[in-house]
Design a binder for these strands. Sequence first.
DNA 1: ATATCTGGCATCCTTTAGGTAACTGGTATA
DNA 2: TATACCAGTTACCTAAAGGATGCCAGATAT
Lengths: 116, 116
Amino acid sequence: MPDIQPDKAAVAQQIRHLQDTLYVVNGKWKLPILVAIHQGNSRFRDIQRSVQGITTKVLSTELKALEQNKLVVRRVYDTSPPTVEYTTSSYCDTLQTMILEMIAWGKNHHDRIREE
Amino acid sequence: MPDIQPDKAAVAQQIRHLQDTLYVVNGKWKLPILVAIHQGNSRFRDIQRSVQGITTKVLSTELKALEQNKLVVRRVYDTSPPTVEYTTSSYCDTLQTMILEMIAWGKNHHDRIREE
DNA sequence: ATATCTGGCATCCTTTAGGTAACTGGTATA
DNA sequence: TATACCAGTTACCTAAAGGATGCCAGATAT
């Protein structure tokens, strides 16, 4: 009667990976912000306008978190007043397929809910 | 000079789909719970043991939310004491590729962090 | 007889996420 | 001269998420 169940260990491992991902992209705003930036909105106000309903404060703190996790790059240009530009990092590109899957599921889900 | 920018509208639409998805699966626990159940943990305590660190209270409320969103099915059998069984719905299966992408990214990310 | 398992519920508490509103300094525009 | 834009910051607040602890009743295992 074996004590070690490799299946359970593998499942636990998968769950941990999932939790690692969630730790980085969790919350209402992070992924929407990434999409907005990725699609060409590099300025603070442009991002805010793209992501419906977000406030300056929340956007500001989320951008800092994303920068810390190296998903977003912030560049300040020495103009007057300073111009600030946000872009997604190349590391952020590794999230692409995941995000596309999430968008696809959301679309599908929305259609399904409407049908009810 | 056109006022309507179809690109911006399309981006906004994608972001909305993403937000729909997040509305359903957001939070620290929902996806890990789904994986645990999907991998064959049908009993309350089994799920709890699979998802490291979750309390009975949180698990209980999350399961209710997942049931409401039709991702999980709860069945009670008339044994004594009653046996309760949780399974993922067929609708939940539509989340599979998305979740696998998230697991894969988490694994990758974890490896990357360790290297630093 | 005692301990432990099951599937939770109730209560209380802390933490975090998120929201509101006001404000800043510098610039450009009307 | 007044207004608006930019990129935020600060202080305050609420709501939701999450955590700790204790409990229940029926059953099974020691």
